[in-house]
Design a protein around this nucleic acid. Structure first.
Lengths: 148, 148
DNA sequence: CTAGAACTTAAAGTTAAATTCAAGTCAAGC
DNA sequence: GCTTGACTTGAATTTAACTTTAAGTTCTAG
């Protein structure tokens, strides 16, 4: 497959794929006359990358998770550290996302007049577990909003 | 309170508070000799902003949620639309974050040799709900990772 | 009264994750 | 043989959310 085909199938831009390659998330593919030639396996790798990205993993983190994946969990302290941190973050995300969903649902259903009241209640129960700062375009953010 | 006091109490930089003001998330405070003078209420507003930010809401979205909060839920189509979209995003986040957590936990515990296999299983069960693209510094991403 | 801390603004810089651009190469069809 | 579309590279630009800087003002302590 050419890079254009891979991009189309993965729902990405060719430039993104080159970018991932340069960032070390993808291994260098074979070349034919200078052009990249991909195996179908790359689609699988890209789906993993996209999945992690959607959850707010930075490319650097994905790189660590992919490249240092331990044969034996004890082998890579860096991998273990990141995984442990990420587990905590995932738990935090679940807690907060659930709280926000409940808040929005209750506001859509009832006729509150003070968003602040709801937010405060939530805020007091779910303190301090920061999500990554998403700086995305509408289509790109780390969270599912717009994904700028 | 001065901006410095507010910042210290809210755990933010004064520059962030000025930035939020310019972005329309905070109303213009009173001035004393050109300097901003805040009421304690601003701390409450900032806590709401920070909470939403942690969940991956962009400042623009927060602005909509705050400024168009409906007296009556039917009053603002834009608000309703955003809230509905966000509820879906929150559900998607919960699903994905749970899957990732389970994957990382199982990998930490067992001795898998193929991260890809786990990821594929997960990916197939939780398709397509994009989180916002987080483009933060290590400390600034929209997701909870590093929050620089 | 004055030194210095804390404030003011506007403008420029930072970071991540790409995209876009410029200039050029290659391969397929006519 | 040439045009065209897809590709190549590296460099510059983009966006969000701030921070930093520069140049100047004001409040406070001594």
């Amino acid at each position: 497959m050419t890079i254009g085909e891979v991009a189309a199938r993965a729902g990405l831009q060719p430039s993104a794929i080159r970018f991932y390659e340069k960032a070390g998330l993808l291994t260098q593919p074979a070349r034919n006359g200078g052009r990249r030639v991909y195996q179908t396996e790359v689609l699988h790798q890209l789906s993993i990358i996209c999945f992690a990205k959607e959850l707010g993993f930075s490319l650097e983190e994905i790189s660590i998770l992919l490249k240092e994946f331990p044969e034996n969990a004890k082998a890579s302290p860096r991998w273990n550290q990141l995984a442990t941190t990420k587990i905590q973050e995932m738990n935090s995300i679940v807690t907060k996302a659930t709280a926000v969903r409940n808040m929005l649902e209750s506001v859509l259903r009832c006729h509150c007049t003070k968003l602040e009241d709801c937010a405060e209640r939530l805020n007091n129960s779910g303190k301090r577990a920061r999500l990554r700062q998403v700086s995305q375009k509408a289509e790109r953010g780390p969270f599912p909003t717009k994904q700028t």
